[in-house]
Design a protein around this nucleic acid. Structure first.
Length: 324
DNA sequence: AAGAGCTTCAACCGCTCTCAA
DNA sequence: CTTGAGAGCGGTTGAAGCTCT
């Protein structure tokens, strides 16, 4: 009956992941694909629960992740999607390629909430706070500045609403919830929209200005546009992955079943992930060779190097330790 | 220079939903 | 149909880094 337990928690490691653990997880997933998280720790030789592995991979190690602070347009999308969907971070994340629900949630809690509050907007309801007019009168310049930094998206609201209407067909179980959200939101817009009409004009922003970026189109300049404070060592942790410009990929379970275990720790190039394993590894090689000064027992890869891609690597990153 | 307070974000916890047995 | 594990989600925590005094 039922399935086997995910993991017995006895003897499992917790807390921050070490470079060695990252290495094992990446190696395993590159070789075997992303499937059956319950089995991953055991097969990868990790003393972690499958859940922890999944979280680490999806939030931190996935090569298609964008790192760094959310751009202004991404922030705008998040605010607007939050107005529509509430704290459904995973759903919001699906509209922001390369961003994780955790990242968006963190950004919301640390940055956007504050901005909205300063603007006199309740971050929960997206309605003006009771003392909004007071605040506007007290600090009109500051308010205007914030508004320019963070305009809301009336046009986007309408388009996204349409999207949801279409999705209602496909997502039957959510239909009633979703529609009630939309109904609520429509009512909110009646209140909010007039407040931000001027913002819309000021910024001229609309959905058309925020094309959905495919993972393979994600390009992050080496000289990050983020402010120095925005690029903490941790937030750069897999910046090198950004440079890979990997194509979109999906690893099927079929594939995994065929090659799991038998191929593990063997030649990754024998499988159908060649196309990006090569890129991935050559970039890693580049990364490691860029940093070979410390001579920390790093191994070079066979893949050819592209010195055009040279970049900085944060010393504190697991990647800088030479994962493979 | 050093300590206190604040901020950020990776990771954990516990819950719900889904689906295999 | 029932049971229970897997997967995923959102809230919360706590360590590390940063800023201020």
């Amino acid at each position: 009956m039922g399935r086997q337990p995910c993991c017995d928690k006895v003897g499992l490691r917790k807390g921050p992941w070490s470079a060695e653990e990252d290495k094992k997880l990446i190696n395993f997933i590159l070789t075997n694909g992303q499937c059956c998280w319950r089995a991953v720790p055991k097969l990868a030789g990790l003393l972690r629960c499958g859940k922890s592995c999944r979280l680490r991979w999806t939030n931190y190690l996935r090569p298609d992740l964008k790192r760094g602070l959310l751009s202004e347009s991404e922030e705008k999308m998040v605010i607007d999607l939050h107005a529509q969907l509430g704290n459904r971070w995973s759903k919001i994340a699906t509209h922001l390629p390369g961003r994780t629900d955790n990242e968006i949630k963190n950004h919301w809690n640390t940055h956007i909430k504050k901005k909205l509050k300063k603007m006199g907007i309740d971050p929960v309801t997206h309605k003006p706070l009771p003392n909004v007019t007071e605040q506007t009168q007290i600090q009109p310049k500051e308010q205007q500045q914030l508004v320019e930094e963070q305009p809301l998206l009336v046009d986007f609201d309408l388009k996204f609403e349409h999207e949801i209407d279409q999705n209602k067909e496909a997502e039957k179980p959510e239909t009633s919830i979703e529609s009630s959200i939309i109904t609520e939101t429509k009512e909110e817009e009646k209140i909010i929209t007039p407040l931000f009409d001027t913002m819309e004009v000021m910024d001229g922003f609309c959905t058309e200005d925020v094309p959905i970026i495919e993972p393979d189109e994600i390009l992050v300049p080496c000289a990050s546009s983020s402010s120095p404070t925005s690029t903490s060592s941790s937030s750069n942790s897999n910046n090198f992955l950004e440079d890979l410009q990997l194509p979109d990929f999906e690893w099927s379970c079929d594939y995994t079943e065929n090659c799991i275990i038998s191929n593990y720790n063997e030649d990754a190039n024998n499988n159908n992930m060649d196309f990006w394993v090569d890129d991935f590894i050559s970039s890693l090689d580049l990364l490691i060779n860029d940093d070979e000064g410390d001579g920390n027992g790093k191994q070079a890869f066979d893949a050819p190097l592209s010195k055009n891609n040279s970049r900085m690597v944060m010393d504190s990153e697991p990647w800088a330790y030479g994962l493979f």
